Simulated assay, not measured.
Amino acid sequence: MAQPETSAGEADDVDAVARAVLTASRVLMAVSARSLAEVEERVTLPQFRMLVVMSGRGAIKLVALAESLRVTPSTAMRMADRVIAAGLAERQPNPDDRRETLLTLTEEGRRTVESVTARRRAEIRAIVQRLRPTQRLALVEALDAFNEAGGEPPASGGAHLPPPGWST
């Protein structure tokens, strides 16, 4: 796809936005790392991503899990072996095809995802609460546009309102 031509001012603006997004991504990575602190001896950030995918998808074949994570099946298998050894997931036969194995979260795995996600949400919420209401609305709109440009649906469902529970 051809890139649109930009003027020097537009290029500077794009560079400023790129820098701001990179800075925000570092903040979010730090939040992610802190949210995993209680379980870091048992699960890494990539393994947690695997648990989140499994949480959202339910019982899943290894190949589909690898595709969702954008890793090779052998990498997904090693990650799965580690979360299984930690008691966070288990293998079970596919009821539709006994030759296949499905991966599912254990109850402990489900609690881990919920706990880490709750800590992450609370810390992000605390950061967002420090913004003025107009900044919050602008952030939702900007992030929705960013997500759409990256091929993801808007987190707000297209409504440019803060998510439920956020004070304005």
Rank of each mutant, 00 (worst) to 15 (best):
A59R: 15
V39M: 07
S68C: 04
S156P: 04
G109Y: 04
V27N: 00
A18H: 04
G56E: 05
E108S: 13
S74C: 10
L88N: 05
P133M: 00
L62C: 07
L88F: 03
V140P: 01
A86I: 11
T106P: 03
P46K: 11
P95H: 10
P4D: 02
A80K: 11
K61V: 10
Q92E: 15
R110G: 09
L62Y: 11
T117K: 01
R70H: 04
L139V: 00
P93R: 05
G151F: 01
R91D: 10
T168W: 11
P133C: 04
D12M: 12
G151V: 00
A30S: 14
A20M: 04
P164D: 00
A126H: 08
R136P: 01
R49N: 07
L139P: 03
M54L: 15
L45A: 15
I124L: 15
D96S: 14
R26E: 15
L139R: 02
R110M: 09
L28I: 09
V31Q: 08
A159P: 00
R19M: 10
V140G: 00
R121Y: 11
D81T: 13
A66N: 01
A59M: 13
P93S: 00
A16H: 11
V21I: 12
E148N: 07
D12I: 12
I84W: 02
Q92V: 14
D96T: 14
I127N: 09
I84E: 13
A155N: 10
L137E: 06
M50N: 01
G87C: 03
R91N: 12
P164V: 02
E108F: 09
I127M: 14
E38H: 13
R110I: 10
A142R: 07
V14S: 09
G9D: 15
E108Y: 11
P163M: 10
E114W: 07
R99T: 15
V17D: 02
A66K: 01
P95R: 08
D81P: 05
E40I: 07
F48P: 00
S55E: 15
G157R: 00
D13S: 13
E38N: 08
E100K: 13
L22Q: 15
P162H: 07
M54I: 14
D144I: 03
S35W: 01
V140I: 02
L131Q: 01
A33H: 13
P153L: 08
L62P: 08
E141V: 06
R91S: 14
A122W: 01
Q3G: 08
T168V: 14
V52G: 07
A86E: 09
A2L: 13
G87Y: 01
A155S: 12
A159T: 04
F146N: 10
K61Q: 14
S35L: 00
R119A: 03
A149R: 03
L28M: 11
R120D: 00
R99F: 08
T101L: 13
A16V: 09
